[in-house]
Design a protein around this nucleic acid. Structure first.
Lengths: 341, 341
DNA sequence: CTGAAAGCGCTTACAG
DNA sequence: CTGAAAGCGCTTACAG
């Protein structure tokens, strides 16, 4: 393994040039004669030289790594496969770029901000992904102040200097409601996500708008924190009423699956007595019974696009927003016309 | 933000000492007078000096980061909450240590090995977690050759120079079988995990041994890749037989939940007509219907212990194996005495 | 087009 | 107990 110890000095010496020139050749910078460049590169290869990332980091003040910090409570994080899929997408891009992903999982928003600070203080990352956008998200001004490039998953509600990579989830919710309305449902409820999260309120607003558009009375809405347990509780509450909804639109799949469990427990048949829809199209959806009608979000594709955009931003100083195909309704077996009274 | 540009030279100058001495004081090394040390530290604090991690990395040849590379197919990764929980546990330790976690998600084992190579070639990490241990795991000799400290999740089957942090899952499987046997089941099947993974075969062997110990005939076993879809298929196969099992022990929860769906679909009641048990105790277990009897594994605790052990190994050159409390059976509603014929 | 030198910001023998 | 210097392995003005 003596090859591991080859340094730029060795290359320079055996190529008979200065270290500076080797560096220039390596980085494709002008100022090196064509044949000199070829010769240097050849020597580098013969010697098995791999430029030291650490030395490079120190002199360029870059880390060649991207960061993702996730602030979710453990239960939500564990039951929601969004991040594993998203990360797999990100990695599929990074792996070809000699860049690494630094991941932080933190318990709350305060620690989250602190984490960003130390990430840049320690020069761990050159850019970050901003997920789970919140209202007036404090991360955006913080990162701006820190001068850290970023890309947001979805469009923030305030000003943002960062490119947004978006999957519009509104059409999916709208389609869910319309679909249920066309089946004949009138009392449709919504188990909403966290009101702190942009996509929580956005889905909720989409629900309300779609109800109005379908000429239906305002639907009952229950707020949750997106966790399976909260989905279960919300369902129990909705179904425990004297007059209960004939359909429920859930803001994510784990809660819908919990709803399925509650309905089974109460002897309420799905879809005969109650129709439900989810959101995200996690793998479980196809394998519960009845299979869950839901909205697909394609987190891996999102991850790829976000990574590509962030790299572009870092390299060129700017990047366009990208709008991915909107989430769309996947019809399976969990919804049917309401029972006649 | 001029504070960001404070360097060791500034501290040395205003404290009236050499850079070397500042470094010694910072790192609590002997050779600095008590009061000098105090003065230096005071100046450092006044100036707001944060030693540059990058410079430190270059001179110490360390990265102050730990690595986790995950080689799982996307579907299994997404439906299994093991890693999110495990990582949350790891992070809870790292966050107090000014250390980062570098995460890689790769599609196959070949890329996995390549990833370890480049991780050390680039000096990205000082140590790694080895999860999803396989038979004769190629990662162990590779990491040994690369000289990278590591900790294994569970005990490998071959020689290993690394400390193992283990949650024995055998007792959980054994307890599942015994429990079902005591309920009166005789035809118990096992939906096993991947035979490539140590914990897949270990659970399978535990199942076989427990069946024998209970004086039961050899149980039917179906191999899978641990994915929800495979769990569904396996269940369909088992239940499609003329003489079918009255109970099924699944090697993980996602497959058990898929099994629940198949049973519902076929009109097979759980637990009246079929008893099932899972493994891992993911959040969903409590919210499906009937709630899933399963085995708890505590991945977050595992993550904490693994991180602690790895840090200890890196600091002291050695670390003891740690055996965490064995996984234990959590009895809920998915098992009952078999129906009488 | 090329070279020699300084710089990135630490740590670590080596002298005294 | 303390200091001055070299070194980690690159990059980047600055001269020629």
């Amino acid at each position: 393994m003596s090859a591991d110890k080859v340094t730029i000095a060795d290359v320079a010496r055996t190529a008979g040039v200065s270290k500076g020139l080797v560096s220039f050749a390596l980085n494709n910078r002008p100022g090196v004669g064509a044949e000199t460049r070829v010769r240097i590169l050849q020597v580098a290869q013969d010697l098995g030289w791999k430029p030291s990332l650490r030395a490079r980091s120190l002199s360029t003040q870059r880390s060649f790594a991207l960061g993702l910090v996730i602030a979710r409570n453990p239960e939500v994080l564990a039951s929601d496969p969004f991040f594993p899929s998203f990360i797999a997408g990100v990695e599929s891009i990074l792996s070809t770029e000699r860049r690494a992903l630094v991941l932080s999982v933190v318990p709350d928003e305060e620690t989250e901000l602190q984490t960003y600070r130390s990430l840049v203080a320690d020069g761990r990352v050159d850019g970050v992904f901003l997920s789970d956008l919140r209202h007036n998200d404090a991360r955006i001004p913080l990162l701006t102040e820190l001068g850290l490039p970023a890309v947001t998953l979805g469009r923030p509600d305030g000003d943002s200097p960062y490119p947004a990579v978006t999957v519009d989830d509104t059409p999916g919710v709208t389609a869910s409601v319309r679909y249920l309305a066309e089946l004949g449902h009138r009392r449709i409820a919504h188990v909403a996500g966290s009101p702190n999260l942009l996509h929580g309120t956005r889905r909720r607003e989409a629900f309300a708008a779609a109800m109005a558009a379908a000429g239906l009375p305002e639907g009952q809405t229950v707020e949750t924190d997106f966790s399976v347990g909260a989905g279960s509780d919300a369902t129990r509450r909705l179904l425990g009423q004297a007059i209960r909804p004939t359909a429920i639109v859930y803001a994510n799949d784990p809660m819908a699956i919990a709803g399925l469990g509650v309905a089974h427990e109460l002897g309420i048949r799905i879809p005969e007595d109650l129709s439900i829809t989810g959101f995200d199209d996690i793998d479980f959806c196809r394998y519960v019974f009845p299979p869950l009608t839901t909205v697909s979000a394609a987190p891996a594709v999102w991850g790829r696009a976000a990574a590509t955009t962030l790299l572009h931003l870092m390299e060129h100083g700017r990047a366009d927003d990208v709008d991915l195909p909107a989430a769309r309704l996947i019809i399976r077996g969990s919804a049917a016309p309401p029972a006649r009274h």
